[in-house]
Computed example of a mutant assay.
Amino acid sequence: MSATVRSWRLHLRVNSTEADLARMINPVVRGWMAYYGAFYRHGLHPLPHRISTYLLRWIMNKYKRLSNWKKATRAMRDAVARHPRYFAHWALAKPAVR
């Protein structure tokens, strides 16, 4: 799973909107959640953190005013508060923000 997430190269898709990213990754993540959630729940543990890290890097690359971790994590926290079901992996665990 993590190799697949890495191959998406989310952090480099600065021309995409968050809706484009959600449309791209949500069906795959929901499938993983359905399968691994039933048969190998422990295998899902690193998934939300990995995807959230790539989304934070995407935020930092797309929005130059959010180019440090503190501002990017605050923006991610605000996005989760506004739209808690926007990305499928947020149902597993909310992004860890400092």
Rank of each mutant, 00 (worst) to 15 (best):
H11Q: 09
R50N: 11
G31N: 09
R57G: 11
L92M: 11
A79P: 07
P95W: 06
S67Y: 13
G31I: 01
V29S: 05
M60Q: 10
K70T: 15
G31L: 04
V80K: 00
V5N: 04
L92G: 10
T4V: 13
F87I: 08
A75D: 08
L44D: 03
R85Q: 01
T53M: 07
R30M: 02
K64A: 01
S52W: 13
M76N: 00
K62S: 08
L44V: 14
K64S: 01
S7V: 12
V14Y: 05
R57E: 10
R57F: 09
Y35I: 10
V28D: 00
S2Q: 14
A96G: 11
R23Y: 05
W32D: 04
T4A: 12
R30Q: 02
P48W: 07
D78M: 05
L47N: 04
P46Q: 06
L56I: 06
A22M: 02
R98H: 08
Y54T: 07
A93W: 02
A93N: 02
A88Q: 10
Y63S: 01
W69F: 15
Y40I: 02
G31A: 03
Y36W: 14
A72N: 01
V29D: 02
F39Q: 08
R65N: 13
L21F: 03
A81E: 05
P27A: 03
S52N: 13
M33F: 11
N15E: 12
W90H: 03
A75Y: 15
E18T: 01
N15R: 14
N61R: 11
V28A: 06
V28Y: 10
A38T: 15
A79S: 14
R50I: 11
I51R: 05
A19L: 00
A75K: 08
T4F: 12
N15I: 06
H45N: 14
N26H: 07
A38D: 09
S16H: 10
A19Y: 05
K62D: 03
V14R: 06
Y63R: 05
R9H: 12
R13C: 05
R65K: 12
N61M: 09
V5I: 15
R30H: 01
V14W: 03
A81N: 12
R57C: 13
T17I: 08
D20V: 05
M76Y: 12
R57W: 10
N61D: 07
T73C: 07
H49L: 13
A38Y: 09
M33H: 06
A75I: 02
G37N: 08
N61H: 14
T4D: 10
L92I: 09
A81R: 10
F39C: 06
W32M: 03
G43H: 14
R50E: 14
W32Q: 05
A75P: 08
Y54L: 09
H45L: 10
W69N: 13
R98W: 12
V80T: 01
R74W: 13
A91T: 11
K70V: 15
R41D: 14
Y35N: 04
R23A: 01
H89W: 07
N68A: 07
Y35R: 09
N15Q: 12
L66E: 01
M60D: 07
A91H: 12
R41F: 10
P95M: 04
S67M: 08
S2F: 09
W32P: 04
R23V: 00
V5M: 10
